[in-house]
């Protein structure tokens, strides 16, 4: 039964991307309305899927790579509907939907078996930590998309720069919340709020890169292309924090790789 909602989410997510693409090509209001309807359906059916999995497992489904990818695509869809309504930049909507779809597609290749939680993960901090991190990741994904579009465009585009900046301020704040909740959790589980574990360290590196972005933009007045490059580097660091650390380096978060 839950897998029905997983497949349904996949389907409507895909349709959303197709209609956003149609809107990009034909610039038709009806197409963009259908796309928004589809992405809303994706959010609802992903929420149902997450809720059902939560009920079956008896714990929040936030404990391994598969579950985190589902949360990631859910967060991307939520941020997507927000920026689409606020900024209405068609190309961003297409590519952000594609990113969410990639995340869900990757999830579909992984093992969906529900396994019981390791003792270290049994904590209320799990939900706060994972949710704040992934809301942050989703916002930073949008900032990456708008930076890439900006870099590919011949003309400077103020709107794209604004979206990048706004999404980075939001992502920066949530990344800070994610790191802090992780530190508080580590302190209550192991008595150490910071141990230079590779995941911790990489999240801090990512946060530093975005701190650099904010300073060069707010204090040095770097806008447009120059700032967009820093945003791209920050996103690559974020990807490494999420995937690279799990697959290439070992540490406290090793359970995240399965």
């Amino acid at each position: 039964m839950p897998s029905l909602y997983f497949n349904l989410s996949f389907g409507v997510y895909f349709l959303a991307m197709v209609f956003y693409m149609g809107n990009l090509v034909f610039a038709d209001k009806i197409l963009s309305s259908i796309a928004r309807f589809c992405i809303s359906c994706a959010i609802i059916s992903l929420s149902i899927y997450i809720g059902m999995r939560w009920q079956i497992a008896g714990r929040p489904p936030l404990s391994n790579m598969f579950e985190s990818l589902v949360i990631f695509s859910w967060a991307i869809a939520a941020v997507l509907i927000f920026i689409d309504l606020k900024y209405k930049i068609k190309s961003i909507a297409v590519l952000v939907a594609l990113m969410g779809l990639l995340s869900l597609g990757y999830a579909s290749l992984l093992d969906k078996t529900i396994v019981p939680l390791l003792p270290a993960l049994k904590s209320n901090w799990l939900t706060i930590h994972v949710l704040t991190c992934f809301i942050g990741y989703a916002a930073l994904t949008v900032s990456f998309v708008s930076s890439v579009i900006l870099l590919f465009k011949q003309k400077e585009d103020k709107n794209l720069d604004t979206v990048t900046y706004k999404m980075i301020t939001f992502g920066f704040l949530f990344l800070a919340l994610g790191i802090i909740s992780g530190a508080v959790w580590a302190n209550s589980a192991w008595g150490t709020y910071w141990s230079w574990d590779p995941k911790e360290t990489w999240s801090l590196i990512t946060w530093f890169i975005y701190a650099i972005y904010l300073h060069i933009r707010m204090r040095k007045g770097w806008k447009g292309r120059k700032a967009a490059w820093v945003s791209v580097i920050g996103f690559l660091a974020m990807l490494f924090t999420y995937f690279g650390v799990n697959y290439l380096l070992s540490g406290l978060h090793s359970y995240g790789s399965s």
Binding site: W196, T201, I205, H215
Partner: peptide
């Protein structure tokens, strides 16, 4: 200077990065 801040942030980030690739 903000320039120094950016340099220091970069240096700390790079040193931290090295520490994740060499086991500590």
């Amino acid at each position: 200077s903000v320039k120094l801040a950016i340099w220091l942030l970069s240096i700390i980030a790079v040193l931290s990065l090295i520490g994740t690739f060499i086991p500590q």
